[in-house]
Nucleic acid binder design. Structure first.
Lengths: 206, 206
DNA sequence: CTATATTGTTACCCATGAGTAACTTAAACT
DNA sequence: AGTTTAAGTTACTCATGGGTAACAATATAG
């Protein structure tokens, strides 16, 4: 007699399922936050989107703020990953900057990233607040380093890399607030325009 | 006998005093909002800063959201004033753009403007929300026109003025979030760097 | 097949903070 | 003067929404 193989072998184990559900909750929460803003979104709103009741959420998150913290985790991992990829090459600083911009405009479409960009700063718990700031400074610092590399290798003109990094970041982060994949601004066109302004500025050179 | 001149002649009449107090309240509120954010700031917080009790505020404002609306009024008047001044000249589009940027960086230091920039979008009342959006579009449109003028007169290179206007605005508005007059970034340096990136971009031209 | 951990639910508590009613004080104009 | 209007106070109401306790269902393991 054939030994019956255990039925319903779990394709995903418990932890994986849990992780998947957490991701879904973050997505729903991020979408809700982008819709109405953090404070105007109640946990009941989020629960409703996820088709569960509020207390269930507490099985996956510590409290409301924890959602922002978890979103930040996802976002910062993604952004740092991009920075790693971009700086791993031995391209010139300017080319690395171009690659970063291209990648960032891509990333900025994602709801969780959007949510992070819009709500970074709302952290209430002082420790979480500090951690968030530190993280953000770290990322900014790495962009500054790309600029510095470019200045050193001659591909970028001499400039105040601190100020330029911030300005660039604000412009890129701003994109997350208005750009929609389904909107009427074409993705390639957007990237092209950003790159052009970074490369050339806007002044016409005769 | 000398006719006694009416003592305590009001240097300011009632309406002027009222207006002054309203301004002070808006300043206090804006400062509080920049500190802790709109939702984390209670009307009691604002009242405390103004050294009155909460119900007194209702003598000057309709409700909490009305503060944002009144701040927006102040801010938009100021920004439109700048645009009027800048576009009144018959300078080239590029020079007008430069002047706008210089003026905007100046303006962005003010707490009420900062507050407006940070909280534009929080409007809850649908009508107020729509009005705010319309106002914002109008301002953006005028910047776009400056760019268009520049393209036409040849002082600005051919570009997608819609996208460029938004990117520029986001970078400028971002300044309001981090720049402080007392901070270690010098005002002139900041303006110079913004103008340079707009003029030249960052790429080094051999 | 039963015991146990995992998910989820219903029904509550309770702090916070916007907005108001009713009353008091200060100012200003005959 | 004394009456009116402005300006401010104390003491509330009341909706909202974050968070929890206690119970119910479902799934996994032994």
């Amino acid at each position: 007699m054939i030994k019956k193989v255990k039925l319903s072998k779990p394709v995903l184990n418990r932890d994986e399922k849990r992780q998947l559900k957490l991701d879904a909750i973050l997505r729903h929460a991020a979408a809700a936050f982008m819709d109405k803003g953090y404070y105007k979104t109640s946990l009941d709103d989020i629960a409703r989107r996820h088709k569960v009741t509020k207390p269930t959420l507490y099985y996956y998150i510590k409290n409301k703020e924890d959602i922002l913290i978890k979103c930040e985790k996802v976002a910062s991992t993604r952004i740092k990953g991009l920075l790693d990829a971009v700086t791993a090459t031995d391209e010139s600083g300017f080319v690395q900057l171009q690659n970063f911009i291209e990648g960032y405009v891509e990333i900025v479409t994602d709801d969780i990233i959007r949510c992070h960009i819009r709500h970074r700063g709302q952290r209430e718990d002082p420790a979480a607040r500090e951690a968030s700031l530190k993280m953000h400074r770290e990322i900014e610092h790495r962009v500054r380093e790309i600029l510095g590399r470019g200045v050193k290798d001659g591909s970028i003109r001499d400039c105040n890399s601190t100020i330029i990094a911030i300005l660039l970041f604000d412009a890129l982060n701003g994109i997350s607030a208005w750009y929609r994949d389904e909107g009427d601004v074409n993705h390639e066109e957007l990237v092209a325009q950003v790159l052009l302004i970074v490369t050339e500025g806007v002044k016409n050179k005769p």
